[in-house]
């Protein structure tokens, strides 16, 4: 790429030409790397879709009977007439490979199939609830970042006791199960102090406790990765030179060290989206919040597999998008990656 760019700007104005040429090829390279990541993401989605399809086949017993049983909520023998209707509706008499291709084709058009139990498209069932879950996970990730940055900036690279306390807190919070933390927060702040409503609701006020339940373990988890990077960065020459220029300790930490230290946590954030959605299932149950977590638990209980697998595919898609965003964020934070 670079040669063609050089022929476009053979002028003696060297500096701008080099900068401009570098910029364009850099953009191309970035675009190519993003495209490669997008293809990788498609492979992940295809894997998720295949797993989802295989799961529907894996239900023990005759599929048409299973679907009828799930609908009725009880297991019994079915007449051929009853079965014929279901076989017709879901195309169960077609060869498996054709069913698989139909399923993939449907997904490509955004059709996640039909709920066994609710007689309507899975997308309608999920679509109503997904906003609440994304609001929750997004708030949780933002809160986790705030908690983590404040905690690490305050405790990393201080006296040994403070450091030990800092990393002990991270180890403990990272290991807390969501159901337990959620119950404790609810008992203390909602039932005990009465600061928050017991039942979450959709308002901002009701969002805080559920989001904190997800954010605290995540902050501990990201904090472990950030602390190591933070303490390494504190010993770097650029920190010493900043201090020599008379920069204050807090300013050094926030302006120079943090930028280097947050990279592992940025990577973790993409992964964290999946993890917080997992946690959201539990948190929505504790705080009786609407969301796909509750839909998922109900569907798992009823063995309504199209809804379960639909949620799996949607979350896999969210995960892929989040990781693409993380890659973009990475290059924004670390300019070195743009040239390398």
């Amino acid at each position: 790429m670079t040669p063609t760019l050089q022929t476009e700007s053979p002028t003696p104005a060297v500096a701008p030409a080099v900068a401009g040429g570098g910029g364009t090829s850099r953009a191309l390279r970035a675009a190519r790397s993003i495209a490669a990541k997008a293809v990788g993401g498609l492979v992940v989605l295809w894997g998720a879709a295949t797993a989802a399809f295989a799961a529907q086949l894996a239900l023990p017993g005759d599929r048409a009977t299973v679907i009828l049983n799930v609908r009725a909520g009880q297991a019994m023998k079915r007449t051929p007439e009853e079965l014929a209707g279901v076989i017709e509706q879901y195309g169960l008499d077609h060869p498996v490979i054709l069913q698989y291709l139909t399923f993939l084709g449907g997904l490509a058009r955004g059709d996640l199939g039909n709920s066994y139990q609710q007689y309507r498209p899975v997308w309608d069932v999920i679509g109503e609830q997904i906003g609440a879950t994304f609001a929750l996970t997004f708030t949780a990730i933002v809160l986790a970042w705030v908690l983590m940055v404040v905690w690490v900036t305050l405790t990393a690279g201080r006296r040994p006791q403070v450091r030990a306390l800092g990393s002990l807190a991270e180890t403990v919070t990272a290991g807390l199960p969501h159901y337990w933390l959620g119950i404790i927060l609810m008992l203390v702040f909602a039932l005990g102090l009465g600061w928050f409503p017991v039942i979450g609701g959709t308002g901002l006020h009701g969002l805080l406790l559920p989001a904190l339940t997800l954010a605290i373990p995540l902050a501990g988890f990201m904090g472990q990765a950030t602390r190591a990077a933070f303490e390494t960065a504190l010993t770097q020459p650029f920190v010493i030179s900043a201090r020599m220029r008379g920069m204050g300790d807090l300013a050094v930490r926030l302006r120079h060290v943090l930028r280097h230290a947050v990279l592992p946590a940025v990577t973790l954030s993409g992964w964290a989206l999946g993890a917080t959605v997992s946690g959201a299932v539990v948190v929505e149950t504790i705080f009786t919040r609407p969301g796909i977590g509750k839909v998922l638990v109900t569907a798992v209980n009823a063995q309504d597999l199209p809804v379960v697998t639909g949620i799996v595919v949607v979350i896999a898609a969210a995960y892929v998008v989040a990781n693409l965003l993380v890659d973009v964020a990475y290059t924004l934070i670390d300019p070195r990656l743009r040239t390398s």
């Binding site: 894997g47 998720a48 799961a55 997992s278 798992v300 309504d304 949620i311 799996v312």
Partner: peptide, 24 residues
């Protein structure tokens, strides 16, 4: 390796729930 990466993309609890849905 690719297969493991795909499986890793699924949150543990979600994966477990999918299996519970199948097996009861």
């Amino acid at each position: 390796n690719r297969f493991v990466e795909i499986l890793f993309a699924f949150p543990t609890l979600l994966f477990a729930l999918l299996l519970v849905a199948i097996l009861g």
